[in-house]
């Protein structure tokens, strides 16, 4: 590994350590977020309310520098609300100001869409373009967001008056990361009683800014992807994982009380697999390796694949139980070599 990448790796680990110091008991979620930052992928967060999703994102935004914008998804939110807002100024004249997306211009680095499933599909489609092309058209011109990374959140408790993300929208997200309440009692006591965690603003301000500049991430991500090349054996392994996610029965995968040939409606897309490899390469880089190993793919398989595999409607009500079983069965079934 060249010295520049090695230096960046040290900074990335420091960055991860600082976030872990800010958000307790979420090491795995933090590791996945850090991977997504250096793989330049968008992230869908899922978890209960108040478990630290926003704090985690603010910590990431603070560490990376750049501008941070946040919008709450509501049922009456329209695409235009992301681009501009109108008001009467103090002279009574109508004014049009840039909305959350346009306000920071090219320096917008982290965009947090809270409760995305409460927004209408029209809003989703605008966001899809931002995520896919990192640009939008407004006021007869193109606006570029070269450094933007979208984090969207949906809470798993309330399902009423929500619009489930369409498959195309979910596929644009590199990862779906679950944020759970820590299980360790000592961590829970720390979160409850330590005053440091009561004031989120001061907690976030403790994170150093600028060690990793947001505007350098695209170039760094490119270097990481180029420096780590998969072997033929690993390509076969990734291909087997993909095929198994589309046709698990062919690979001898069985789940209890499931007709395996009817389980999958649609497997992971090629874009999803490219996301998997990108994330796996970043994992290898963080582990200080130039070799991409099966364990790198396994480390990110759940978060990059689970939201891209669509179950048959007759099994979708058991999705939360079946999907983790399916993912772990795939990983336990496919050997390399």
């Amino acid at each position: 590994m060249n010295k520049q990448l090695s230096d960046w790796r040290n900074l990335a680990l420091q960055f991860e350590q600082q976030i872990n110091h800010t958000v307790l008991g979420q090491q795995q979620a933090v590791r996945h977020c850090v991977i997504s930052v250096f793989a330049r992928g968008h992230v869908l967060l899922e978890g209960n309310v108040g478990v630290g999703k926003t704090t985690l994102l603010r910590a990431i935004a603070q560490g990376l520098g750049g501008d941070y914008q946040r919008i709450e998804g509501t049922i009456d939110l329209m695409p235009a609300d992301l681009i501009y807002y109108t008001y009467l100024d103090n002279k009574g004249k109508p004014q049009v100001d840039p909305g959350p997306l346009l306000k920071q211009g090219e320096s917008l680095a982290t965009f947090f869409f809270n409760e995305i499933n409460r927004a209408r599909p029209q809003v989703h489609s605008l966001l899809l373009r931002v995520m896919a092309e990192r640009s939008i058209s407004a006021f007869n011109q193109e606006y570029q967001f070269p450094h933007i990374q979208v984090f969207a959140d949906r809470n798993r408790i309330e399902r009423e008056e929500t619009f489930e993300l369409p498959a195309a929208a979910r596929d644009r997200f590199m990862m779906e990361i679950n944020i759970d309440t820590p299980a360790d009692d000592s961590l829970l006591k720390e979160l409850i009683f330590n005053a440091r965690f009561h004031d989120v603003d001061s907690l976030i301000s403790g994170i150093e800014t600028g060690n990793i500049a947001y505007y350098q991430l695209n170039e760094l991500a490119q270097q990481i992807q180029q420096s780590i090349q998969p072997s033929a054996m690993l390509k076969n392994y990734a291909l087997d994982l993909w095929k198994a996610s589309r046709n698990p029965k062919q690979y001898g995968i069985k789940l209890s009380d499931v007709e395996m040939e009817q389980l999958i409606q649609s497997g992971a897309s090629p874009r999803g697999m490219s996301f998997l490899i990108r994330a796996a390469k970043v994992n290898a880089w963080l582990e200080n390796r130039e070799t991409l190993l099966p364990e790198d793919l396994q480390a990110v398989f759940q978060v990059t694949m689970a939201h891209r595999i669509f179950l048959n409607p007759i099994y979708s009500y058991r999705q939360e139980q079946l999907m983790p079983e399916l993912i772990s069965s795939i990983l336990e079934r496919i050997a390399a070599p």
Binding site: Q229, P230, S231, M233, L234, T291, L292, L293
Partner: peptide, 9 residues
Amino acid sequence: YSNQHYFST
């Protein structure tokens, strides 16, 4: 050794 053989150049 196996990783080096299968996954490394």
